[in-house]
Design a binder for these strands. Structure first.
Lengths: 204, 204
DNA sequence: TCATGAATCAACCATATGATTGATTTCTGG
DNA sequence: CCAGAAATCAATCATATGGTTGATTCATGA
């Protein structure tokens, strides 16, 4: 049952371990307290071995950003489909995000941390902007589909509506997995605001 | 026109300068890159003088948080008033926030930076939570007033609606003062979702 | 004016920190 | 099995960093 002391691993395997360790440390102590030594220690390797796999701290951050994005993308539902009911797709898309907050809170929380350093790390800023835009675009498409299906009020504008929805949902990122109590009430409220008013049947 | 080399200032004046310098550095380089030496240098004082006014780095962060909150509060409009039209107050409240992003982008951006260290600085977390809740509560009250005035749809729930609105608007914080182009489209979209449907006049 | 306290500074300390160097161990293709 | 490539480590470097100490300068009221 003894673990090997020094299992030599392939570079990509070691980099995956490094990324996970760094992400964990960022979540626990914040990016400001991220130390390459601590990452190496958590992985169980020498600091110089860390530098062999990840030459600089900036590249370590880039690695964390890339792997986090990939993990996030893997959790998304199928792309919007004009043939399926928009309300179902909207609910599925939001559920996927909700479940990611519940089951993998480290992803959104890590993004929230990385967003703070986007101002000084153009590579990270580019990655986050691209991801955020792509994520918002999925909602834009679902809302557009819904408009053609007539399930949303006719004056709904997909882009502002998608920005409002993703903005509101993003606010839950740093609070997950606790603090999700208001997630569905908030979503439901926004959704009610999107829906077409049912036909009037006299004054109530 | 020569500046005095060593103008001895009162403690509160110096602390105000220190807070402003620290906030500026946090915005320019991120909290992770905040150095007490850089703060002292920007103020134009010796690092040990900085420690005389602000004994630890943690207290420096607390000072920044407190002064930022006070500056923010000073920009808010009068408290919600049941006697005034809710839509006017809602617009005024949001305009005050928008103008704060436009004219004092450092305030919201600083809050966004501080939020990432809330996990390790309970004092900062407490301050941010209190402020955020108080800010959201203002919208809750305005929306509640609007319900009694009948300007919002009857099934609107003030707290989820306020969380949705503040969440969506908060997303603009780190993007100010540029990146405000979608601010009003997003707000208008949310507001349309809040409004009571106008009386039907037959199928359109 | 002058004693007292407040504010400031130069020098320094102990440690943290990202990174490098060169030797050592393990893996792998032939 | 063996030689070269890949991965790892111990030791070290140069600097960054938060904080301390004790002397010095300035402001202020008696």
């Amino acid at each position: 049952m003894m673990e090997q002391k020094h299992p030599y691993l392939r570079k990509d395997e070691r980099r995956a371990m490094i990324a996970e360790a760094a992400r964990g440390l960022i979540l626990e102590k914040g990016y400001a307290a991220l130390r390459t030594r601590d990452v190496a220690s958590r992985v169980g390797i020498n600091p110089s071995t860390l530098h062999f796999h990840v030459p600089t701290k900036a590249s370590l951050v880039a690695l964390v950003a890339e792997t986090t994005r990939e993990s996030f993308l893997a959790l998304l539902p199928p792309a919007p489909d004009p043939a399926r009911p928009a309300l179902v797709q909207l609910r599925a898309e939001t559920t996927a995000y909700h479940d990611s907050l519940r089951d993998h809170p480290e992803l959104a929380a890590c993004f929230a941390q990385l967003r703070q350093i986007a101002g000084t790390e153009p590579e990270v800023a580019e990655l986050l902007d691209t991801f955020t835009q792509a994520w918002c675009q999925r909602y834009v498409e679902i809302l557009t589909i819904g408009l053609t299906q007539g399930v949303f009020r006719a004056d709904l504008k997909p882009l502002p509506a998608a920005l409002a929805l993703t903005g509101a949902l993003t606010a839950f990122g740093p609070r997950a997995p606790d603090g999700l109590a208001m997630f569905w009430p908030v979503f439901d409220e926004i959704e009610r605001g999107f829906l077409a008013a049912p036909p009037h049947r006299g004054e109530g």
